[in-house]
């Protein structure tokens, strides 16, 4: 199965990364004052804003007696891709993305705590350079944490692909747009790395079963690596807002 040439003879990828190397991650929590929680996340050139409202009173028609209603909205900015294009919110692609986001996040949110309430999660992709879904999930997780909504663990999403080097399969982590467009398989996993649970898994092409495990484990390793980075940022954010006058003394 000779796939596209994603690895150079030195074993480096098209953008100069090693196969197990993530793109650079930069993020910030609490970027807005209006929503209850918000986050901005960059993974390489993929840039995403997430905002969380709630939990607040659910609309009567949607309200559930025993759990919270999670409402996700994924949208892409007009200028997010190479081709400038108006993207209406309700189109098929963003609807599907919203559903997938909801599925991944519902796995972590402790929904039983907030009956008759609703949580709104809005995600806006400012620049899409591969892995927009993953970055959206990660940004939404940060926004939920910023909003103080109880979640079981970090939900982290990561992609992995498969390349060939000297006839040997070599999985690639955190696939960029160029590698996606080259036509290789892309496996997307949303998981809770600290428990090992998988909230969502999706594959773009066919892949021989023999290689699936290696690709999956590379994606899971990517999730773990991202979690470490995000956890550090969350701690820094908490420390930054810490003032002496706080009355967090144990009673």
């Amino acid at each position: 199965m000779p796939g596209p040439d994603l690895l150079s003879s030195q074993g480096l990828r098209l953008d100069g990364r090693r196969p197990n190397e993530l793109r650079r991650i930069q993020c910030k929590l609490g970027v807005f004052t209006q929503p209850d929680g918000s986050a901005y996340l960059e993974q390489g050139n993929t840039k995403v804003l997430a905002a969380v409202y709630g939990p607040h009173q659910a609309a009567k028609s949607k309200s559930l007696q025993d759990s919270v209603v999670v409402n996700c909205q994924y949208s892409m900015a007009t200028f997010s891709t190479g081709e400038r294009k108006n993207r209406p919110r309700g189109d098929r692609k963003s609807q599907e993305m919203s559903m997938h986001l909801r599925q991944a996040l519902m796995a972590a949110i402790k929904t039983e705590l907030y009956p008759r309430s609703q949580i709104d999660i809005y995600v806006e992709v400012l620049q899409a350079d591969g892995g927009a879904y993953c970055t959206s999930v990660n940004a939404a997780t940060l926004a939920l944490i910023d909003a103080g909504i109880p979640i079981k663990a970090y939900v982290i999403a990561c992609t992995a692909s498969l390349a060939w080097k000297d006839g040997e399969p070599e999985p690639l982590v955190d696939v960029s747009h160029v590698e996606e467009a080259a036509g290789g398989v892309v496996l997307t996993v949303a998981s809770m790395p600290s428990t090992g649970a998988i909230g969502l898994i999706e594959m773009s092409h066919r892949l021989h079963m023999d290689y699936f495990d290696t690709v999956l484990s590379r994606a899971m390793q990517g999730c773990k690596d991202i979690e470490v980075i995000l956890d550090k940022v969350v701690r820094e954010h908490l420390a930054e807002g810490w003032t002496k006058s706080d009355d967090a003394i144990t009673i």
């Binding site: 944490i145 109880p150 967090a248």
Partner: peptide, 22 residues
């Protein structure tokens, strides 16, 4: 812990208080 914050302990009851919430 289910939220990001500091621990508050009252005898045997353990709470984690987030930086901000509703």
């Amino acid at each position: 812990a289910a939220v990001a914050g500091v621990m508050q302990k009252v005898n045997k009851l353990i709470c984690i208080r987030p930086r901000k919430n509703r």
